[in-house]
């Protein structure tokens, strides 16, 4: 069971993602390069955070046109698990593998803080370790995390259970007061219609190792692992 962490010029959370798979899950993981046209034998792909291509034009706008992204699209079309975190989420929306887009934070500030999140849908390969309604804490660190999609798209996503995480307070209440960046419906993380591609602004890899003080991000990686193990027997 091999994992891949996709690197772009400017990715800066790749080592944390690598650590989560290598040391926390204890599974084989390798780096994939943005120029790769063949991703090799991988079962799950993590697109890490950072500032690919300096975030020029729009975050993810240049990265999503990389040769490796063509291969990632094909991998996802065949049912492969893909998770994009922070800049990885922005790359996935730019590539249209996920609906919507990430706009500048409503408050015009780069946000860097521990963030309470409510698990909205725990019935996915990425969230099965949680229960719906659980409150978890993952760090956020972004300037463009304000999720936007057209109202009909949002309605469709809501009714399909495509919202995985929402920003909330420690009690799990979701309101405009607990919404750090202006995202529609406090959306922090979403899944595609076929249930194998996820994008999220918060960083589960930064809360996956208890030595860092937060560990409930581990559940995202364990969920993915269990799904892969069940699939591959």
């Amino acid at each position: 069971m091999n994992w891949g962490v996709l690197l772009f010029p400017g990715s800066n959370c790749a080592e944390d993602c690598f650590h989560a798979v290598d040391k926390i899950l204890g599974k084989p993981v390798k780096y994939l390069w943005h120029k790769d046209t063949d991703l090799g034998d991988v079962d799950a792909i993590i697109i890490p955070g950072g500032f690919s291509y300096g975030d020029h034009l729009r975050p993810g706008a240049i990265a999503h046109l990389s040769p490796a992204m063509t291969a990632v699209k094909e991998f996802a079309a065949n049912g492969g698990l893909v998770i994009g975190i922070c800049n990885g989420f922005q790359i996935l929306t730019e590539s249209r593998m996920l609906p919507g887009s990430l706009l500048q934070n409503r408050g015009l500030k780069f946000l860097c803080q521990d963030q309470n999140l409510k698990v909205d849908n725990a019935d996915t390969p990425f969230t099965s370790e949680y229960a719906a309604g659980d409150v978890v804490v993952f760090p956020i660190a972004h300037n463009e995390g304000n999720y936007y999609a057209a109202p009909d798209t949002i309605a469709e996503m809501e009714s399909n259970g495509q919202i995985l995480f929402r920003y909330c307070n420690p009690e799990g209440e979701v309101s405009e007061k607990t919404n750090p960046n202006g995202s529609i419906n406090s959306i922090a993380g979403i899944i595609n219609r076929t249930g194998n591609v996820v994008g999220m602004m918060p960083h589960p890899e930064r809360s996956a190792d208890s030595v860092l003080g937060l560990s409930n991000g581990k559940g995202v990686f364990v969920s993915m692992l269990k799904h892969l193990e069940a699939k591959h027997g």
Partner: peptide, 9 residues
């Protein structure tokens, strides 16, 4: 269409 603008927003 391909890069300079994101038609979603």
């Amino acid at each position: 269409d391909k890069m300079l603008a994101n038609p979603v927003v």
